[in-house]
């Protein structure tokens, strides 16, 4: 699969084409793409942006199109597209977005914008919203252990304590949560697909309500499904950030020279029905600042 599409991107690349490769066509990726497109075309109106759906077209089909079109830059949206870009696109510059922590990308012609909300940022917000909370529960696997450590670090000086539990499989999640629930004031979900899957998330949210443990989710969808709060990056702005990186590459900078960035805008969603169910009074100011409120 690994192809060297062109020996030197600057000489062979077509000046007017950018390929946007979607891992899959879901709403958050689409928002990020719109942000990217708007930013790029604002300055380079002549740029043509070609959309590709990795899930539908497959890696080979996209590779052939890229070979034919010789795009200036490839925008990879999501981990799958990022992995594809790393493995299949030789030296063409790649800007990745809508990914959490792709350590495997180090040292390549790829740069990216992380969508992970910094742990410190999260903890500060929790401190502000839940001034009485002391213990935060967190279940993680070996893959997300670093996130746990960052969270522990982020709690420093905020009067918060993280109660963590590492598990190795999805099946362990219910028991781990049940064991943890009596000890914590709220539960923080980690972006770890190794241990989270739809049924366990459903279980977690349901049991959280039953055991009166507020759950902090990862996206507005979790809030709507039963989490009390979710802190998440502004997907549109993530796309804009990626667009700014792309413009810098077009202007001549090398991808590896562009520093990785974190989300500039953090959004909050809140579920007032869950708050009422849990008996938690939310500060009206927090509600006003929230980007998504479920009543």
């Amino acid at each position: 699969m690994c192809l060297a599409l062109s020996p030197a991107w600057s000489q062979a690349a077509g000046p007017d084409v950018v390929f946007a490769v979607f891992s899959t066509d879901i709403a958050p990726y689409r928002q990020a793409f719109e942000g990217f497109k708007g930013t790029v075309q604002e300055r380079k109106g002549s740029l043509r942006i070609v959309e590709c759906d990795l899930e539908k077209e497959g890696a080979d089909g996209i590779v052939q199109r890229i070979m034919k079109e010789q795009p200036h830059i490839v925008l990879a949206l999501g981990p799958e597209a990022t992995k594809f870009a790393k493995e299949s696109i030789g030296s063409t510059p790649v800007v990745c977005s809508m990914i959490f922590r792709p350590q495997f990308l180090a040292g390549t012609n790829i740069t990216w914008v992380s969508m992970e909300v910094p742990a410190r940022e999260k903890m500060e917000r929790i401190r502000r919203i839940f001034p009485d909370a002391r213990k935060i529960g967190m279940i993680y696997s070996s893959g997300s252990a670093i996130l746990y450590r960052e969270t522990v670090e982020g709690c420093r000086d905020l009067g918060l304590q993280v109660v963590g539990k590492e598990i190795n499989s999805r099946e362990e999640l219910p028991r781990a949560f049940n064991d943890m629930a009596p000890q914590v004031d709220l539960f923080l979900m980690a972006p770890d697909t190794k241990i989270y899957f739809p049924e366990s998330i459903k279980y977690l949210l349901t049991e959280g309500l039953r055991k009166k443990v507020p759950v902090i989710g990862l996206a507005p969808a979790y809030t709507r499904a039963g989490a009390l709060f979710s802190f998440y990056a502004d997907y549109l702005d993530l796309g804009r950030q990626a667009g700014e990186m792309a413009l810098r590459i077009i202007d001549g900078e090398k991808p590896q020279d562009i520093e990785l960035s974190q989300p500039r805008k953090i959004k909050t969603s809140v579920n007032l029905a869950v708050a009422e169910r849990l008996g938690i009074k939310i500060d009206p100011k927090v509600i006003d600042e929230a980007s998504d409120v479920t009543k």
Binding site: G78, E80, P191, Y196, F197, P198, P220
Partner: peptide, 15 residues
């Protein structure tokens, strides 16, 4: 049951 395709990136994003 529902099975998440890929790395579960969509699941984390709530989609």
């Amino acid at each position: 049951t529902s099975r998440i395709e890929g790395e579960g990136e969509a699941l984390i994003l709530g989609s």
